[in-house]
Design a protein around this nucleic acid. Structure first.
Lengths: 219, 219
DNA sequence: AATTTCTTACGTGTTTCACGTAAAGATTCA
DNA sequence: TGAATCTTTACGTGAAACACGTAAGAAATT
């Protein structure tokens, strides 16, 4: 029993080309050949397909939206994006949208076959350039959201203020904080007032956000 | 002019072994050989070293803390972690802590040399198993924090409640919300009360967190 | 037609916010 | 060492927000 795939590509010649390529592959069966992504969700045989190859020219909001709908409405269907679009942000968004694989323009026939078998085995597949992009992105994310409280915040707030902010940010009421720190409610209020003034915050909501941004509390 | 490295390893035989290995390498000069990570920060010649190889048995909080201090106090010094510890969480934390490279136990002599030259050129270096781990982690992170408002939240809250929550989460006071939505302050309060009840939240802080978690507002 | 949900709004008492004032203790700096 | 500054503590007051109930008309659903 082979892998049942669908192809969708607005460029008709590319669609034909991909069809011949896939048709020539051992164990691959093409069940759907469509040139309009917008039609996909109406296709009745979608649940018979294992892997849907989407080949958009540009990764626009429309494609992302279709990808989300496909993956949400048909959880078993795996979407493989095949695109020469090199926009880093939108590539990341396709993965967020639920695509299980991505082949950039550096991929050849063997990569495609490998991707199809990898997806069929339940794993994600990203071509080399995409893998590097993801890694680069992740490392920089990791380093910026380092998970350590920023020195800026610690320098700005006194240790007592930090204590109050931490407790308050962890859903304690002023009264609970006063009991835990053995101070009066008025003192708790004073500390919070001082924090708001120091950081020039408008509302209590802003104070929560500050605490989250600075890794003082968790979301 | 070669690469000046330091080695730190609590296991004395491993320290000796690493020293001989590095000493035998072309273009590598070992300036520091220490068996106690706690001493590192006191070493006066730290700024002459290009790469510090840290070889901890376990990636504990003490090692992470030292890594943070080293990278913050000596920005030019590059920390290369060499550890057999396979705890995914702590491996990620070393990178957050500022380590520029990580060699897992699947690395050999050539990987070490490659890592040293890669770091010297200003790039990060992670061995293959670490790269895979990072990628796996990133993909799952991407997919969970998908950036789309969760259906759960949208189903639970009415559209009016969502409006109020969004405005409030964006630092509007109840009075400002009432003006923008052309309703009374009391109605704004009512909506917020209903949200708290529906979601079984204790404090206003929890409501902010809910809104952030569900991508209704940004931190 | 009956029921539920949504939106609107008020009453009352408590809690928190905003802005001052203030004093004892710790820290720092000249 | 003495003066200046910062930190922590705390109260007063009026405004704003929260907690919990009640409630009624509109809209959607059954």
């Amino acid at each position: 029993m082979g892998i049942k795939v669908g192809i969708c590509c607005e460029h008709k010649l590319h669609l034909e080309g991909l069809f011949f390529l896939l048709d020539s592959m051992e164990g691959i069966e093409v069940l759907l050949k469509d040139c309009s992504p917008g039609n996909l969700l109406n296709y009745p045989g979608l649940d018979q397909i294992h892997i849907l190859i989407l080949n958009p020219h540009i990764l626009d909001a429309r494609i992302l939206n279709i990808t989300v709908q496909l993956t949400v409405l048909h959880p078993k269907l795996m979407v493989l994006i095949l695109s020469a679009d090199e926009n880093e942000t939108t590539i990341l968004k396709t993965i967020k949208a639920g695509a299980k694989g991505f082949l950039a323009k550096d991929s050849d026939r063997n990569d495609l076959l490998e991707a199809l078998y990898t997806l069929r085995n339940g794993h994600d597949y990203y071509s080399k350039s995409i893998t590097q992009l993801l890694l680069k992105q992740y490392i920089s994310d990791l380093k910026s959201e380092s998970g350590f409280t920023r020195q800026e915040a610690l320098n700005c707030l006194s240790s007592r203020e930090l204590e109050v902010l931490t407790l308050w940010g962890n859903s304690n009421t002023n009264h609970e904080i006063s009991e835990k720190l053995f101070i009066s409610v008025r003192t708790v209020e004073s500390h919070k007032n001082h924090i708001m003034q120091k950081l020039n915050l408008k509302t209590a909501v802003d104070m929560v956000k500050f605490a989250i941004k600075n890794n003082i509390i968790e979301v």
